[in-house]
Design a protein around this nucleic acid. Structure first.
Lengths: 141, 141
DNA sequence: TACTAACTAATAATCATTCTAGTCAAGCAC
DNA sequence: GTGCTTGACTAGAATGATTATTAGTTAGTA
């Protein structure tokens, strides 16, 4: 059913064009519900499932990246020492990164906050997922 | 057990000790379900709510960190425009920060990941919470 | 124009999380 | 010890996000 190389071409529909237009230039990281809500006026009969389907298709095309954990699940880190994380956007593995980034926010940007620290989440594709991707492409050609 | 920030100390129970033992040294960043599943044999009658309650308590104690998104929603990134967050640890308010950080991970730290992007969360205390804190201290003295 | 795979809407099912109610055990005052 | 208070436990209901299913519709192509 699915073409896992992502080379499958995507059919264009009014709903999809509206979603892509909404995403284009969007500086926020919207959830499916955000997208649905923003387009409800324009497409009152659109289904939430359509948003999810479209996001799945766009992910396969590599146009958008899904930033969250598997099914949006909470994950807990028992190490209270300040450190950062690296998450695979495919298999959702999370590994620790122990390195310090001396990040400071210009006063104009702090909006009155007293900054206590920072955490950096890197996201990307882990070795085993990128290996698998390569294997799939070879098999499919 | 440490009692930072004046938070109340935590009552110890067999369930809580088992959860803490499971978490100790765990680098897998387990979800609540993972923890529940891992301790099922040992505590067949334990409720998932107990896991959530315990994690909430451990978070308050500052011994674990909760990773990932608000109320378990998926987030999509349409285009990697730099955009980070500033979160108040008191009232949980989140504001956007539009600034770019040229963060790179040394090869030795990437653990084979192909890095696609990053997100920075600053945490601190927002203006209205620190104002309130000041007011409280004045009233209390 | 006709065909067909891909898409849509509606809705049911599933899953993670939170909430609620009732019970139980520990610590404390009497 | 008895009764009170508090916090934690279990079970299950409620909530909200996501995924799966189904039947009808449509974009893209020959």
């Amino acid at each position: 059913m699915k073409d896992s190389t992502g080379s499958k071409s995507m059919k264009m529909t009014p709903q999809r064009m509206a979603i892509m237009k909404y995403l284009d230039g969007n500086t926020y990281h919207p959830s499916a519900g955000d997208i649905y809500g923003a387009l409800r006026d324009q497409f009152p009969t659109m289904s939430l499932a359509t948003v999810y389907n479209t996001m799945e298709a766009l992910k396969e095309q590599g146009v958008v990246i899904e930033l969250s954990t598997d099914r949006g699940k909470k994950r807990f880190d028992p190490n209270p020492k300040p450190h950062h994380h690296l998450m695979c956007i495919k298999c959702k593995a999370i590994v620790d990164v122990f390195i310090e980034f001396p990040l400071t926010l210009p006063d104009a940007q702090t909006q009155g906050f007293e900054i206590l620290g920072n955490r950096v989440d890197f996201y990307g594709i882990c070795k085993s997922c990128s290996d698998e991707q390569k294997r799939m492409m070879e098999t499919n050609q």
